[in-house]
Computed example of a mutant assay.
Amino acid sequence: MTPAFQFRQEAFLLTSVSSYILTLALNPKDFQISIIDPVNNLCLWLDEFALPETTSEQEYLAQIQEIVSKHPIAEKTFWKSIRLIVNNQSFTLVPTALFKKEYAARTLSLARGQVTSQETVQHTLHPTWEATNLFAFPTLFSDWILDIYPLEKIQVFHQSDLLLELSSKLKSTGLMIYVEKQAATLVYVNETKLHYCNRFVYRAASDLVYYVLFVMNELKIDAEEIPAWVFGVVTEEDDSYKGLYNHIKNLSLGLPDAVSIPRLPGDSPIFYHVATLLS
């Protein structure tokens, strides 16, 4: 399968994989493979594969397995670490003081419905926000990743974990809007407190604008005053950006100055791709 988008950095050295982080990002409609140099804060390699629609997790995993098996570097071993990023609606945040690992599945079930026997519940601590993120991960994928990387250090994150980590670098009140293809995540920080984090699916740009404005109204966020940043798969020419810009006075395209991510050259919207968000 040929990547729909690809990038190669000349600094990439196959003999130095032990210094690099391999990231595999699992999204409903696409799959990304990236290599990050954490020392120099660079993205050295990025492939994005568009996936045909599937009707089961088995079919989806079969596509991922085929891509990885034929990829020139994905099955290499002895990386500094391997990060697996899952992107779905099955996540919820709880105060860390109330989090009990033995009740993780029950807690997530209250937020999104019953956790099945085909899922495991992962969790990520976010000390800055005194919160723990719980999310569902298909057992099929757990078994597969352990099978192809049996000796590697593997970290599993939900996409929202990356955005929560980015938002922790904000020094003041602000609204971050991460835009994907037909999905978006909002993170609202009020002074030094996390007030909101949620992901939603949309079909049209007008739906995205409506949802953002609805959330802002419910949270009593002043659209005339709030500093806001929209980033991800979005440009100044997109209807979604234009619609948001018409309503949010202090909206910027890109990330706040205080937030640093692995760099890609150029001004492509892929610059803020999820695979590069966590250095």
Rank of each mutant, 00 (worst) to 15 (best):
I36Y: 08
L13T: 01
L46R: 01
L44M: 11
L24W: 12
E75I: 15
D47G: 11
I73Y: 15
C43I: 09
L61H: 06
A104I: 09
E66L: 15
N27H: 11
L98G: 07
P52I: 06
N87A: 01
E10L: 10
L44F: 11
R83N: 08
L110P: 08
Q63F: 10
A62M: 05
V39Q: 02
N88G: 15
K76A: 01
I73A: 09
E59S: 13
R83P: 07
I85V: 14
P28G: 00
V68D: 08
S16N: 10
Y20M: 06
L98Q: 12
N40W: 08
A74I: 13
E53V: 13
K29F: 15
T54P: 14
A50M: 02
Y103D: 05
K80Y: 04
L46N: 14
P52W: 09
P38A: 10
N41R: 03
L44G: 00
A11C: 03
P38L: 07
K101L: 12
V68Y: 12
N41S: 04
T23M: 05
N27F: 09
T77P: 00
S56D: 13
L26V: 14
S109Q: 06
L22N: 05
W45N: 00
A74R: 04
D37W: 14
T55N: 12
Q65K: 09
E53W: 08
V68L: 15
N87E: 05
S81I: 13
K29V: 14
T92Y: 06
S56C: 10
Q89C: 05
H71N: 07
T77A: 07
E48M: 12
V17M: 10
T15L: 12
D37Y: 14
A104Q: 13
S18A: 13
L24F: 14
S19T: 06
T92Q: 00
K76N: 02
Q32K: 01
T55M: 11
Q6P: 00
